[in-house]
Design a protein around this nucleic acid. Structure first.
Lengths: 225, 225
DNA sequence: TCAAAAGTGTTAAGTTTACACCCATGA
DNA sequence: TCATGGGTGTAAACTTAACACTTTTGA
């Protein structure tokens, strides 16, 4: 009975985070230019190891926190990466998560310490191990999810213009969207609410600022963009 | 540098399989009435542990093989389950996979040895640990995937009637489908091909048997059911 | 005054849904 | 001969896609 477990090997369980941010109408990933071994000098995702006193989901939150100083971030598990030699140093089974953060709100000092940089998703360098694969999977999963659930807002400030929201979705989908059709869908869903505030930074005329009303969404959770 | 890994704890990495089969117009899961410890006497998914000489995906295939004798089965990873106390015996991080098998083709002796039984997905018993959660996630993921990719065929024999295919999809979706609209979509996709064989077991008149043409699908992979 | 982004409706095309009867056969 | 499942088309409802001009304002 105790042999039930102990005849089996144990493994390091890693966490790798694909951290999305949106800026200048582009999707970006926060990547490490590793200033530590192993694979020093190469690009990688932010990672870490699951500890004894935390669940795997909590470990993912912690790893994200260690780099960005952020808590309560939208994260989603996208897969387990368990090839025997995926990490040449040791056998590590790694759990990949993506995170969506507001690019204006992370702890810059921490990011600098880790030598992390925002990189346009369309101009990614080679990453260590299977991290490029993880990124691919995260992009597909995020795109899919963003089309059917209101997760995109996590990449924007609390208040945003409809043009910003449209630019975000164009970056996620990688294709242009018709402005009038886009706004029709926004209006139809009903939980993206106009505030009385105006953003004047993006244009001379100024654009109304909107916010996502989560309570209204949950009352009638129809989402499609 | 060697400390990079060794300061971290290691964990048992489990595999749990949600095994779908289709029979009598119902979706079923192959569940164990455990005749071994821990949790002897309770219902659970088929499981196992990742070994040192196999990838996590290979471990999942092996676990499925140990119960069913089947290889080359459609399997999909659906999540990592890593709560600290999810398994009260030891800390185990478990990777859940679902599998779609043709219910007529498994090794009955092996299944009997494990005391495994087919249970209708709509009449599931309480399962140990977080296995009910795993099943829920697998059902959602499978339904989603089955609507957009030709994975349902894995649950049917090589040759099947359109009525069988429709019954399968009705079981997956949990709702009736209009026969004429269903057949219109089949015809439109073009890679579900009529053979010259007739099935006489389901009706007096007999129904044409069809097969899935994977090559034709890949040439023009549009699927929606 | 003009450049630049904000804002706003209508029509056509395409897709999805609803629906009912005849056919072939074995019992 | 009749009960059973197999097989077939059309029209209405709905959804999606295409498309262009006016407004506001700061420089």
């Amino acid at each position: 009975m105790t042999a039930y477990y102990s005849t089996n090997p144990r493994f390091y369980v890693g966490i790798d985070c694909i951290i999305f941010g949106f800026e200048k109408n582009q999707l970006n990933l926060l990547l490490l230019k590793r200033n530590f071994e192993p694979a020093k000098g190469q690009w990688s995702l932010m990672g870490g190891f699951v500890q004894a006193d935390e669940s795997t989901d909590d470990a993912a939150k912690r790893v994200l926190y260690e780099l960005t100083g952020l808590k309560d971030v939208y994260m989603e598990h996208i897969g387990a990466f368990g090839e025997i030699d995926r990490d040449p140093g040791e056998r590590v089974v790694s759990l990949a998560y993506y995170a969506l953060i507001n690019i204006n709100e992370y702890d810059r000092a921490l990011v600098q310490q880790h030598n992390a940089h925002w990189v346009n998703v369309n101009e990614l360098p080679d990453l260590i191990f299977d991290h490029n694969q993880m990124v691919e999977k995260a992009r597909r999963a995020m795109k899919e999810k963003a089309s059917s659930a209101p997760i995109g807002f996590n990449l924007l400030p609390e208040l945003f213009t409809l043009t910003q929201l449209q630019n975000l979705y164009e970056a996620i989908y990688g294709e242009p969207i018709d402005k009038r059709n886009f706004r029709k869908r926004i209006a139809y869903m009903g939980f993206i609410e106009k505030t009385d505030k105006i953003d004047k930074t993006g244009s001379k005329r100024g654009a109304s600022l909107y916010k996502f009303n989560d309570k209204a969404y949950r009352k009638d959770p129809k989402f499609r963009l």
